[in-house]
Design a binder for these strands. Sequence first.
DNA 1: AATTAATGTCGTATATACTTGACATAATGT
DNA 2: ACATTATGTCAAGTATATACGACATTAATT
Lengths: 71, 71
Amino acid sequence: MTRNIKIKVARVQLDMTQKDLALAVGVSRQTINAIEQGEYNPTIKLCRAICKVLGKSLDELFWEEENEDER
Amino acid sequence: MTRNIKIKVARVQLDMTQKDLALAVGVSRQTINAIEQGEYNPTIKLCRAICKVLGKSLDELFWEEENEDER
DNA sequence: AATTAATGTCGTATATACTTGACATAATGT
DNA sequence: ACATTATGTCAAGTATATACGACATTAATT
């Protein structure tokens, strides 16, 4: 899977740590870390929560052109 | 969870059945049905695949204003 | 240089997304 | 009316998103 640098950038722009973001959206810090590392594939509900906290749209944070690998 | 009528509308505009869409994105028909019924919470990868097939953006098909229920 | 905070990563466990097969009903076509 | 197609739903299984605890490393503070 491919790293999501966009989340990291948006997070740092708000001066939030992974822990802060995790707390704000109600998941564990490891989950945020794994998403930024591209180690998994969050659910749309979590994506929406992250967008709301970071003040970005789904398209801004989670759209990707390439990579029609598996599901 | 809340029903996703937007997918259904976009799908019907392209004259696709649930089966057609399932095939095009590589999941089972029941998965598409469950998503339209709002029975679960797809992964972002599947959302992207659906968007690409239906020619819509994430924001168009998967944004929701309300419902900060759980996660 | 030493402490503390932030991040990356691993292992084990749990919840749930997704599969497959099956069947019932609704809608569409002949 | 009958046949076919589309949809809804259930049960049992598999894959994986996420949790929690722990520890190592890197970056920031003092």
